[in-house]
Structure formats: C-alpha cells, structure tokens
Design a binder for these strands. Structure first.
Lengths: 204, 204
DNA sequence: CGCGTTATTCAACACTTGCGGAAATAATGG
DNA sequence: CCATTATTTCCGCAAGTGTTGAATAACGCG
C-alpha cells in the first residue's frame, strides 16, 4: 500500500540488491494480516504482496505458513521481563503498575499483537493452551504467589479477566471512551479493581 | 472425519421425506463450526456434511456463506430481555446481578455463542462494530445512564472490560480455577469490582 | 576476476473453496 | 391419479489456496 515503487515492468528475477530486509517485511505484513484475518483467513500470497515480495519467500524463510505464524506471534517483549517489571515496587501500587505495563506493551505495537493472540486463542485450542500456560506460569503465577495469602490461583485468574477484558474492549471491540482513554485514567480506574483481586478481600 | 457411519449407498436424490428440518440442522452445524473455526476457517461443505445435507442447501436457504453466518450469529437471547433483567432490583446489588445474569446466559448453552462472538469480533471489523453497538446501546448504555452520575460512558466501558474478560478467561482461555468456579464464588469476587465501576469512586 | 552460495522470482502443481445449473425426487393440490 | 411446485442431490466450473522446483541474479570469498 505505502511504498509503490513498482515500475510497471515485471520485477526482475534472482537476488535483489542488498539492503532490503525481506524477512522483516514479511514478519510485519504477517502480524498485520494475521491480526486482521486470523490464521485461516490470512493468505500467504496477500501477506507476501503486502511485503512486496514473492509468496515463495514464506516457505524459504519460515518453512511455510505455520512457521510464519509462529514467528509472527512471538510476544513483543520477553515474558520474563514483564514479570520482573511487574514485581518491582511496593505491593499496594501493583494494580496500577500492571495496568500501565500492559498498556505500554500493547499500545506500543498498536494492539495488533493482542488482537492476534486473542484471535488465535479463540480459534485454535492449541493457541488457547499456550496462552493459558503462558499467563499462569509466566505472568500471574509469580505475582499471585507473592501477594495472595488465601486463594492465589483464583486471584491470578481474576486478574486475568480484568486484563484480558481491558485488551478486548480497547483493541478488539474498541468501545469508547475507553478505547481512546489515556494510561493515567485507566490506571486510576481499573488499577484499584486489579488491586482488590491481588490483595483485597475476595468475600469468600 | 469423526462419524464414518455413512452407509456406502449414495444418498438418494430429490426432496427428502417430510419431518427433517434441513434449515435448523444447517444452523446448528454452522454455529458449532463457526465457533470452532471462525468465518474463514469454517467451510460450507464441512458444515453441510455435519448437518447431513448437501452443500448447495446453504445457497438455497441462506443465499451463501455470509447469510448462513449472519443467521447463525444471532444472539441466543433477546437483548432487551437481558437489559430489563439487569435493571430490576436495588442498585447496590447490581454488580452481582450482572455477573449472575451473564453467567446464566452463557453457561446455559451460550458459552459457544460467546466464543463465536469474540472470535468473529476479532477477525471481522464488521462483527466488531455490531458487537460494539450492541453492547453500548442495548446493555450498558441504559445501565450506566441509570447509575453513573459522573462518567456514564466510561463506566459502561469499564463494565464491558470486566464482563468481556470474564467470558474470555472462562470460555476461551479456560484459566483455572476460574473456568470451573461456580456462580456464587464469581458473583462474590467480581461482583464488587463491577459495582465499583457502576457506582463507586473512579478516582478521576 | 571466477565461482560457489544465497536470495529471489516465476510457473506450475494438486487441492479446496463457493457457487450455479440441471436433473431427480417428494410433497401438494386438483 | 396426474400436473405442479418446492426441495434436494449431483456435477462441474472458475477462482483462489499453500507449496514446490527450476531459473536467474546478486553477493562474498578466494
């Protein structure tokens, strides 16, 4: 769409001049396309075209559509890094910090990564399992273990509902005014609710 | 793949004997298949086969794949009915009541519909818009108008995050122990958070 | 400069998709 | 009991899918 550098002459064969990063272009187009159309809906040809490259490059670089999907779905930051970032600082501010951390990560990539994740989770049972394991072991597990004296796993699940719902409404459904709200407002509003899930009385 | 019970004799041609409801069978199969594979992933042939019917019936009855999708996606309950149910009773118990209402609808066979809805919303911008309008005008709009003195729309969006996230974690990601928690426990835990979004201090 | 290696495109494959037309059959009404 | 109509199946088409193999061009090393 953007770089229309095609001369009308069909592109010459063989290796292209150096400097162009086919792999990266392919990955970008794949993230966008998978997020919009899902795994089955996105076509290799369209993604390759968007990257300005032949479809065969998908096979060459990623070994097929699935490989490209796996590569495109890798999380934008290191999970361990997130977990550490969340665990630093005073416990009573953890709710707000979690909100800010996730918003920072997701807004950085335009939310596309989140959409793709949710989408693949609801289509692919395998992806759902991966997401489930990732969430429980990498993110909320350690957190809940540190803060929840009574029902740590339930607390983690509850936090999951608030975070997933936040992403859902902000990036997928795009319900206003939340979709356009700034990080401060969201930290102030959903932070306390998260905090209750973490350290508050659950009423059980 | 699963049911290989086809008698080897090819099905007889022409109109089937009365009593069989092709349309309904097609709809059921479509709901299941769309929920599992999404719009692009589900194939007309597979759905027709699951319904024990020829694929041409999709064209005949619904005018194509999209028509079948639209017909299959209609909500399992009347939206107005939900909204009314939510609005009855004292305001200070509204959080719990909302949780119980949605859990009742979804657990009562609607879990699949929720998954399908989320899935189509994250794949199809059109579906996302429908869901957005449905939520804001039919469900949370009236509610927020009744309870929120200061930021009614933001309150509605926030409620949306908690409800969508609850469905997400319970039916899509299936994070335990929340996925198997009973309605009482969830009403006690997420009810108060919803209540804060409705009538509490948002900290703005 | 020559030459193997790597990156890239093209053409074609085998396959599946949604869809429309024609034939076949059952229900219906006179 | 026959003519009509609605419903269903079969068949095949055109388009689009992911993938493969061969051809070609640029690169990097000697």
């Amino acid at each position: 769409m953007s770089t229309e550098t095609q001369d009308s002459a069909p592109r010459r064969r063989g290796r292209r001049p150096a400097g162009e990063d086919t792999r990266r272009a392919l990955l970008e187009a794949a993230r966008r396309s998978f997020a919009e159309h899902g795994f089955a809906g996105a076509t290799v040809r369209a993604m390759a075209a968007e990257a300005g490259v032949d479809a065969a490059m998908v096979n060459h670089w990623f070994g097929g559509k699935e490989g490209l999907f796996a590569a495109a779905m890798e999380l934008p930051v290191d999970p361990k890094q997130i977990s550490e970032m969340l665990l630093t600082g005073p416990i009573e501010e953890m709710g707000e910090r979690i909100v800010r951390t996730f918003l920072g990560v997701w807004d950085g990539g335009g939310g596309g990564a989140f959409v793709a994740l949710m989408r693949s989770a609801s289509s692919n049972e395998n992806a759902a399992r991966m997401l489930r394991e990732f969430i429980s072991t990498m993110v909320f597990g350690p957190i809940a273990k540190r803060v929840g004296p009574d029902h740590p796993d339930l607390r983690a699940s509850l936090c999951g509902t608030q975070i997933a719902g936040l992403g859902m409404v902000r990036y997928v459904i795009k319900l206003e005014p939340l979709a356009s709200a700034d990080h401060d407002a969201l930290a102030a509003t959903v932070g306390p609710n998260l905090q209750r899930y973490l350290t508050g009385d659950l009423g059980l």
